[in-house]
């Protein structure tokens, strides 16, 4: 089936089997390999992307369901020139080790901070509980997200 949607600001058109998940479509068809697949049953959060601004698990969504949607992946939240404030905060707090779960945390944290730049530590933990990290023990990730709040408070820009 042909499906058209926007990824990181660019229109794409792909011809896919209905059974292809959005996660696989991003990785295989669009070669956006920053979105990682860690469980394929909606538990680990490594595949989190933004669909029309909402953080969703791209392994629990079909590519054909993205038709007409705006999809943003970790690549879309990055630029080559510099790390974003959220990424800088992750680096400063050593909120990543092996890096495999990291894209899912970045997308999830970005969605949270965009909507709730005043969130407290409990809310950060509650939201991040849908993402599994096996390396850090989460303490540093929570610190990084809290520390990045200030960057989201003014005019909603990253």
């Amino acid at each position: 089936m042909t499906t058209k949607f926007e990824v990181n600001g660019k229109q794409v058109e792909v011809d896919v089997e209905p059974r292809l998940t959005l996660a696989d479509c991003l990785r295989q068809n669009l070669r956006l390999t920053g979105t990682h697949i860690g469980c394929e049953h909606g538990v680990c959060g490594a595949c989190t992307v933004l669909v029309n601004g909402d953080a969703v698990r791209s392994c629990l969504m079909l590519a054909v369901q993205a038709d007409g949607a705006k999809v943003v992946t970790v690549e879309g939240l990055s630029n080559d020139a510099d790390l974003t404030p959220l990424q800088k905060s992750f680096r400063k707090h050593h909120a990543l080790q092996c890096g495999f779960c990291t894209p899912g945390f970045i997308t999830t944290a970005h969605a949270l901070l965009t909507e709730e730049p005043d969130c407290d530590a409990d809310r950060v933990r509650e939201v991040l509980s849908g993402n599994i990290c096996r390396c850090t023990g989460y303490i540093s990730i929570v610190e990084a997200v809290l520390d990045a709040r200030s960057a989201y408070k003014k005019d909603g820009a990253r």
Partner: peptide, 8 residues
Amino acid sequence: DLRFLRGK
């Protein structure tokens, strides 16, 4: 981190 944080 420079590559991991960018999904690279």
